[in-house]
Nucleic acid binder design. Sequence first.
DNA 1: ACCTGAACACCGTTCAAGT
DNA 2: ACCTGAACACCGTTCAAGT
Lengths: 206, 206
Amino acid sequence: MTIKRKYHHGALKEALVDAALELLAEGGPASLSLSEAAKRVGVTAAAPYRHFASRDDLLNEVARRGFLSFGERIEKAWDEGRPDASTAMWRMCAGYLAFARDEPGLYSAMFGSVATLSAPASAAAADHALEILWRSVVAFLQQRGAPAQGARKLALQVWALAHGVAMLSISGHLDAAKDLDPAHVLDGAIRNLMESAIRRAETARG
Amino acid sequence: MTIKRKYHHGALKEALVDAALELLAEGGPASLSLSEAAKRVGVTAAAPYRHFASRDDLLNEVARRGFLSFGERIEKAWDEGRPDASTAMWRMCAGYLAFARDEPGLYSAMFGSVATLSAPASAAAADHALEILWRSVVAFLQQRGAPAQGARKLALQVWALAHGVAMLSISGHLDAAKDLDPAHVLDGAIRNLMESAIRRAETARG
DNA sequence: ACCTGAACACCGTTCAAGT
DNA sequence: ACCTGAACACCGTTCAAGT
């Protein structure tokens, strides 16, 4: 009664995605190999091509799912702005950095590859994540009694800031600043950004 | 009188670096191949190993030089804060984004690879680039009569912001915001960051 | 000291053949 | 419909041998 692999795996696509996440966690996007994923799952190197058009296609699917769980995570962290917008905004930023810190390989796959993430599915998932950020900024401005006029630009700035800190942190460039932890740097900058926006609104109102 | 390649190339190391820059420009870090660089230069795939320990070693050398020319570029753009700190800061940020836009492959090689850029030489070059940013922030604060107290943290925030915008721009995530160009987004954010810092100094002074 | 040639393991990808 | 086996081009890397 030896354990035999069935000829048909049954859930090969899911298994390959899981293996890809493993590889990403172990060595980043560079070590995501279709062959290695196939080997770990117990199929031939050619088998994945029934489910993915190419290596980049697999990477893209992984990135797409990454954006989805990323969006869920920061949405939960925002928690509809409870107990107040400032606290929730801080918590969301911390959640953003925590995701990048906990899954640097996945985060790099989502944002790192220049030409790879051209697929529309992945782009849509990324836009969804941005939208959550945008809604948070709008809610923040509303709670402070400011108009949501420049919210889109502000959301983009918040995103760029969080992304920049995350990437510099992942790549180790922030390690030189031993006394400054990433979350602290980001929090201070976000605070400045939001305060400036609110102040400008107040000044405009007279 | 046929043109014959000398057995000894003479300047193989330099030639390989140049070829690597070409490959980087054509297809990003993923298409930087030691074999392809060797082929373009006209030597065997094994020849580069006299000059570079590995593919990553070549990539690292290219990144190191990238940081050097990047540092020169933003230093020139800053131009010692002429005619005034605000204008110079804007010009430096524009120069930062222009570098990333003109050489996306090189910029990605400099910042993108997570595990690759672990070499101390490359890290030192990166730190030097950050120092230029830091000096600019200090000069900005001085010209505005504010103390240079939080300059280091502020420089890190400026860097993260510029890096974030550059990366999002390179990876195409900013294209969704058709009406907002990267330089404009960055400029607005930097302005808010600096103004908040100055205002805080003024409040503290009473 | 610097490069070639041959070799090996690995990877992406294709395709005819198996279940 | 899904997977194997064999095949090809390509790449990183090593090493003995050539100049």
